[in-house]
């Protein structure tokens, strides 16, 4: 996945998109701007206002008293120094990054493998598998969380029952949610399970666009499957891979619901906080909105740093 490969197909991130025709000189027509207006307004109200508000709060002392009407005073960088000086924040950050990278890497590996497998399947089976994955992807996250909690339930869960049945010592009645390592293992399985389908669909869509004759020619020249994958498939679909990977990283870094719900089951809140739940705990539960806003801003910054490449590419694409 290199940057050079993205140049192979100018004009778009997905391959196979026709070059848009060069714009002709047009008279100024206000209609396009008028049509844009609702969308712009929605974005401004929906995202601009909260963002502004958050930036303001990050520089204020804002706790419960301010929430109920006391005027907030500006405290400069106080909130930021407090966050950065808190060891809990750094532990949470490390945990979040590790969780995000592991999940994103595994999701990509499983997703690409699944997509390649799909191309080899007969049509009927392939449709069946795609339908199954669509269901997994469309399942509301709370429903799948409930099912996962049942699967890993310490009393009647099928996982403990099976492992104990296999003769593994201590697995009968094992509580997966009371140990940070197994807690995150279950959370990771759930997160990956929910995001693999999208990767499969996108990679599958682009793999099927690859020129068959190119693959045939390489077979005649004696290339094996691995070589074909490395030398033909990957470079061709690199733009898609890049895009999906970065999206996965963004999504996995700001994971909230899964961790938040599983924490209710685990009773080890502090050892299982990720950035999202940490911000929630400091802000909404802890009543310290100023520090929480500062933390959320830092989180935004980290996300931007991690995904800068995609963002610039996204902007470039818009200029075409």
């Amino acid at each position: 996945m290199t940057v050079t490969s993205t140049r192979a197909k100018p004009g778009g991130i997905l391959p196979g998109r026709p070059e848009p025709p060069a714009p002709k000189k047009r008279r100024r027509n206000p209609l396009p701007y008028l049509l844009l207006l609702p969308a712009v307004l929605i974005v401004l109200v929906d995202m601009g206002y909260p963002l502004l508000r958050q930036i303001t709060m990050a520089f204020q002392h804002f706790s419960l008293e301010q929430q109920f009407g006391k005027p907030a005073e500006f405290v400069g960088l106080d909130n930021f120094t407090r966050v950065l000086g808190d060891s809990a924040f750094w532990l949470t950050l490390g945990r979040s990054l590790a969780f995000c990278l592991v999940c994103a890497a595994l999701t990509m590996a499983i997703g690409i493998g699944g997509a390649l497998l799909l191309t080899k399947l007969s049509r009927a089976v392939s449709v069946f598998v795609q339908a199954a994955m669509l269901l997994a992807w469309a399942m509301p996250v709370l429903s799948s969380l409930q099912v996962f909690q049942w699967i890993f339930d310490s009393r009647s869960g099928v996982v403990d029952w099976s492992l104990a049945g296999l003769g593994l010592q201590g697995m009968a009645g094992y509580n997966w949610f009371s140990n940070p390592v197994t807690f995150f293992a279950v959370a990771a399985i759930l997160v990956i399970w929910m995001s693999v389908p999208l990767v499969v669909f996108m990679v599958y869509a682009s793999v099927t666009q690859i020129d068959e004759s190119m693959l045939e020619a390489s077979t005649l020249d004696g290339a094996n499957g691995w070589k074909q994958f490395r030398e033909i498939t990957v470079p061709t679909i690199a733009p898609v891979l890049l895009l999906v990977t970065i999206l996965e990283i963004i999504w996995d870094l700001r994971v909230f619901t899964q961790i938040f719900i599983l924490q209710k089951n685990g009773g080890i809140t502090e050892q299982t906080n990720v950035l999202g739940t940490y911000v929630y705990q400091v802000g909404l539960s802890g009543g310290d909105y100023g520090v929480a806003s500062a933390t959320a801003l830092i989180m935004l910054l980290i996300t931007l740093l991690l995904t800068w490449r995609y963002v610039t590419q996204f902007l470039k694409q818009g200029e075409v």
Binding site: Q54, V279, L284, Y289
Partner: peptide, 12 residues
């Protein structure tokens, strides 16, 4: 990425 901001939007 900006969504974190929305988390706190309801307050204040």
């Amino acid at each position: 990425a900006l969504g974190a901001a929305a988390l706190l939007s309801a307050c204040g």
